[in-house]
């Protein structure tokens, strides 16, 4: 790898379970045991009611494309133009990601189109959750 790759996360104690999850091809969210709020990004308490009684829950991996830009400038680890997207998970939370297996054009990237998670290993420890057009949405 002569060229620098994309920025990679460094897990913290509060987020380690999420990155362990993606490595095992699971998208993990958290749910409050008291108020049932499902939330992201990870933290050991509920952002809605401050309860510390929270559980890790596996997401379906289904989402819709919520918003994005198509970046035309150079970036380490990317070949422009590429979309920087936010998807809205079926469980409610939104997350930033990239849309793969899809042309990076306004025509191909329609807001509200169904997408599904795919897991792309980056290193021995870090796997990123990316999204592709859902099977039912693919022509």
């Amino acid at each position: 790898m002569a060229t620098p790759g994309r920025a990679l996360p460094q897990p913290t104690p509060e987020t380690q379970h999420f990155w362990d999850g993606t490595k095992a091809n699971e998208l993990l969210l958290q749910r409050c045991d008291d108020c049932s709020k499902v939330y992201f990004p990870p933290r050991p308490f509920c952002p809605a009611c401050a309860s510390r009684k929270v559980s890790v829950t596996k997401a379906s991996g289904k989402a819709i494309l919520y918003s994005y830009v198509i970046h035309h400038r150079p970036a380490p680890g990317f070949t422009p133009p590429y979309a920087i997207a936010v998807v809205e998970l079926a469980e409610g939370p939104r997350m930033m990601t990239n849309i793969v297996e899809c042309e990076q054009t306004p025509e191909a990237l329609q807001l509200d189109m169904p997408v599904e998670v795919v897991f792309e290993p980056q290193t021995d420890t870090i796997t990123l959750p990316l999204f592709r057009p859902a099977a039912t949405a693919k022509g």
Partner: peptide
Amino acid sequence: VHPQSLNGQFEQPFGPMGPPSMFTIPVLR
């Protein structure tokens, strides 16, 4: 952006290069 921050973990890996490619993301919606 520090790679242990929430931004560093959950936004930077997806290729934003500062405000022009971040601040603009909500606009299509």
